[in-house]
Structure formats: structure tokens, C-alpha cells
């Protein structure tokens, strides 16, 4: 039997919104330690890895590991039926071919349940190597979203260049060019407004705007985003979920011809 109850059900709605652009279907791996999901998009350019720790749920029971393969478009349809202040419970029997979502209003006066068919997905699990990154940038997630949105008006790609002084985002296209520079700025009133750069050596990498914009669907999940970069390895864009886990995206850089 698997059962996970989240009083802050809106969080689950936001997690789904943050991945459904990139993935049509994925397997939620449920274990005693929590729920995880790892999947590449169909073109194998980006990878989503997320983890929701069991202790972040208000009730969590997982007698044995279960893999819940879901069509995420269908899951999103069901999640839209939950209000933002609903308590959400996910339930599945061992070896079941369906999953049940229960939505309760805070006053318990309305309880809805939706049963969804599971899919048998041929999921291959990937080992993600530990990497010492040349540059790690922490910045406000809304700022990153804004920059990705603005520069995608200019071109298809964004060059992210990081030095000790700051980080620069650049785009070029038929209409001209755009550059956004952010200086390191740790002395701010609110921690979430800080721009912090940990640099071993400067890097400059090119990434597709389309994917970066998809990643920023996770913005409502965290006030800060962390970008980890090294030459010729995938960019990691991480949103930490408070007391719960993370949503991470990996993106292969564009290569100079």
C-alpha cells in the first residue's frame, strides 16, 4: 500500500506544472524515503530529476516500492480539479494498475476522488555523476525567469557567461542583440534577492531558450534558483523545495560547429 498526504496540495500542482511541458509521461518511483522521478524529454536534450522526501508529507506510507507510470497530461487534467487550498492524497495498492487522487477542502466538507489508469513505462534509470562545477550561480528565480523570457524575444539561444564579478546572459538574432548583466550582490535585505557566485574558473556556455523557458515553470516552487555550469557538461538548474526536496533540470549545451 502506498499513501502520501500533502496538506499543502498546491505544491503538488506546482510540481506537475514544472515538468509537464518537458515530459509527456514519466514514472513516479515511490519508496520509503520519498517519491522521485527522473526522465529525459523525447529529444534527449534535457532531463528532469525531482525528489519529494517522505518527511515533507503530512502522512506517508510506503510498504514496498511502487513505480507509478503516468501520462502527465492526464495527471495535469486531474490536478486541475484540485483547488489550491485542497489537501491532496495520492494512493495506490501494491501492483495496482490505477492510482487514486483524493482532494479534500480544508473544512472537510467536500471530498473528491479521481482514479487514473497507470501506464507500463519502459523507464531506464540514469546515473548522474557527481561533478565539481566551475561556476555556481544562485539568483532570484523570478529574475532568471524574466531574463529567459526577455532574451528569447531576441534569439533562440542564450549565452551564459560567468566570472567572479557577475553573470552575463546574452542573445543575438535577426533584430540585434541583448545582454543582461547581474553583479554579485549578497548584501541585500532579503536572502532570496541575493545574487551569489561561486567560481573556480570562468565559463561561457550556450543554451536553447526554449528549454530554459520550460525550466522556469518551476519558478513558483522556490524564491531562488541555482545554476551549475562547467565547460562541455550539462547545465543544472535547481529549484529547492523548502523542507521537501528539489526539482532539477539538466540541459545539454549547444555546441559550436
Amino acid at each position: 500500500m502506498f499513501e502520501a498526504r500533502l496538506v499543502q496540495g498546491a505544491l503538488l500542482k506546482k510540481v506537475l506544472e514544472s515538468i509537464k511541458d518537458l515530459l509527456n509521461e514519466a514514472t513516479w518511483e515511490c519508496a520509503a524515503t520519498g517519491i522521485s522521478l527522473q526522465a529525459m524529454d523525447s529529444s534527449h536534450v534535457s532531463l528532469v530529476a525531482l525528489n519529494l522526501r517522505s518527511d515533507g508529507f503530512d502522512k506517508y506510507r510506503c510498504d514496498r516500492n511502487v513505480s507509478l507510470g503516468m501520462n502527465l497530461t492526464n495527471m495535469a487534467k486531474i490536478m486541475k480539479c484540485a483547488s489550491n487550498d485542497d489537501v491532496i492524497t495520492i494512493k495506490a495498492q501494491d501492483d495496482a494498475d490505477t492510482v487514486t487522487f483524493v482532494f479534500e477542502t480544508p473544512n472537510q466538507e467536500k471530498i473528491s476522488d479521481y482514479e487514473m489508469k497507470l501506464m507500463n513505462l519502459d523507464t531506464e534509470h540514469l546515473g548522474i555523476p557527481d561533478t565539481d562545477y566551475s561556476c555556481i550561480v544562485k539568483m532570484p528565480s523570478v529574475e532568471f525567469q524574466r531574463i529567459c523570457r526577455d532574451l528569447s524575444q531576441i534569439g533562440d539561444s542564450v549565452v551564459i557567461s560567468c566570472t567572479k564579478e557577475g553573470v552575463k546572459f546574452s542573445a543575438a538574432g535577426d533584430l540585434g542583440t541583448g545582454n543582461v548583466k547581474l553583479a554579485q550582490n549578497a548584501n541585500v535585505d532579503k536572502e532570496e534577492e541575493a545574487v551569489v557566485i561561486e567560481m573556480q574558473e570562468p565559463v561561457s556556455l550556450t543554451f536553447a531558450c526554449r528549454y530554459l523557458n520550460s525550466f522556469t515553470k518551476a519558478t513558483p516552487l522556490a524564491p531562488q534558483v541555482q545554476l551549475s555550469m562547467s565547460s562541455d557538461v550539462p547545465l543544472v538548474v535547481e529549484y529547492k523545495l523548502e523542507d521537501m526536496g528539489y526539482v532539477r533540470y539538466y540541459l545539454a549545451p549547444k555546441i559550436e560547429d
Partner: peptide, 14 residues
């Protein structure tokens, strides 16, 4: 110009 790289090869299939 640039071409989009892929993730295959960066991660090992377990």
C-alpha cells in the same frame, strides 16, 4: 553557428 547537444553519453544507464 551552433548545434544542440544531447544528454546521451553524459549519464550512465544503470
Amino acid at each position: 553557428s551552433t548545434t544542440q547537444g544531447r544528454l546521451d553519453g553524459f549519464f550512465k544507464v544503470l
